[in-house]
């Protein structure tokens, strides 16, 4: 009895999800919704590789720097939730971006620092498979990067 009611609830939930999915697709076909937020760099987020994403986001080259530090696990058992933090001693930092090289779209998140913001950020990211994670810091208008490898045991992109 309880199984049946659970099953019918599940069916209702699926119907609701399908309806929502339909609405979502409808929304995406409308340009106003596709790039809903002004200033959200859609081109950079849609780029496949880290290099393409950085060109779309900043339009300039970066150099590796030991003044950028990126912290995270060496091995992530669950690729769906990988804590990553970025920190730097560089001055006048205006943005920090984090890229997951092996994801379908490399750019995961980008942060703009307002006046007074300290140049450090922590967040949790999804990783499809074992990958290089790249942190890029914009300091005095120039780009500095660091990377670290994260071994992913169970991918987090449902692939």
């Amino acid at each position: 009895m309880s199984f049946e009611s659970t099953a019918s609830l599940e069916a209702t939930r699926r119907t609701a999800l399908r309806l929502l999915a339909g609405l979502g697709l409808y929304g995406i076909s409308m340009p106003a919704f596709a790039d809903a937020v002004p200033g959200w760099p859609a081109d950079a987020f849609k780029a496949k590789t880290a290099d393409e994403a950085l060109v779309a986001l900043y339009g300039k080259k970066f150099e590796m720097s030991d003044k950028v530090s990126i912290d995270g696990p060496d091995i992530a058992e669950n690729g769906g939730v990988v804590p990553i933090s970025v920190d730097t001693k560089l001055p006048n930092v205006t943005s920090i971006s984090i890229l997951v090289a092996e994801n379908p779209n490399a750019l995961a998140s980008s942060y703009k620092l307002g006046e007074g913001a300290n140049p450090a950020v922590g967040c949790r990211l999804k990783m499809a498979k074992t990958t290089k994670v790249i942190a890029v810091v914009e300091s005095d208008g120039k780009l500095y990067a660091a990377s670290r490898d994260v071994k992913v045991t169970l991918g987090g992109c449902g692939g």
Partner: peptide
């Protein structure tokens, strides 16, 4: 003071520290 620009690779129920 701080703006996060997020793509779909940010984990479900996102966490942010700054």
């Amino acid at each position: 003071v701080f703006t996060a620009l997020w793509g779909p690779a940010v984990s479900k129920d996102p966490y942010l520290k700054f």
